[in-house]
């Protein structure tokens, strides 16, 4: 408990700073760096990932499509996996299934996700790598819900936020409620 509070406090201290660099292994065991990823990007999309979560599973083809359509504009997508129950092989197998070529930060000690204040998988953050500030936080869209999905989304939160960031204007809807599987922060 104390440990947890402590780590949250540590995380809190980074709150008022820009998004710091995070270095984590990917599924191949190579260390990848958030800031390095931002070097040649116009925007970064960080999506909280978890194996076996029905919500993020349904989003996977949608994410793949978006990553491909925004790639020519210099937007880079990455996953962050903070699930203590997912090991590297499981994450690799899960991502391979969708074959979207999106890298994943294996956040084993959960500190990256905690600092980014992720509450649930599928929660998405858009970062402007020029300033390392967060421009959007929330759902990808409003299509997928716990026990059902809409025929098509009514709000394309992520797409719209990226549009605003790329146009250099303030994001009109900077936050929304993300549905996904709540992350368990364990000490």
């Amino acid at each position: 408990m104390t440990l947890l509070l402590l780590s949250i406090l540590t995380a809190c201290s980074s709150l008022f700073l820009d998004v710091p660099d995070f270095k984590r292994p990917n599924t191949a065991g190579e260390i990848i760096s958030l800031h390095k990823m931002g070097d040649d990007a116009t925007a970064l999309v960080l999506i909280s990932h978890g194996v076996d979560c029905p919500v993020i599973q349904q989003y996977s083809p949608i994410i793949k499509e978006m990553a491909a359509s925004f790639a020519p504009k210099g937007v880079r997508f990455a996953f962050v996996n903070a699930n203590t129950q997912d090991d590297a092989q499981e994450v690799a197998a899960d991502l391979k299934e969708y074959d979207a070529g999106i890298p994943v930060f294996l956040d084993e000690n959960q500190k990256m996700s905690m600092a980014l204040a992720y509450k649930t998988t599928s929660e998405t953050i858009v970062i402007d790598p020029k300033t390392w500030t967060i421009k959007y936080r929330g759902a990808i869209d409003d299509q997928i819900r716990y026990a059902g999905r809409l025929g098509k989304p009514r709000h394309h939160y992520l797409k719209d936020a990226l549009g605003d960031v790329l146009a250099g204007v303030p994001v009109k809807t900077p936050s929304s409620r993300a549905y996904g599987c709540a992350i368990s922060y364990l000490d």
Binding site: I8, A11, C12, L15, F16, D18, M114, L116, A117, Y118, K119, T131, W132, T133, I134, K135, R137, G138, P174, S175, Y185
Partner: peptide, 18 residues
């Protein structure tokens, strides 16, 4: 550089929540 209060709100809430 500080985060704008706009983006800070949700982050802070997330932490409070956890």
């Amino acid at each position: 550089r500080r985060m704008s209060s706009r983006t800070l709100g949700p982050i802070f809430l997330g932490l409070v929540l956890s």
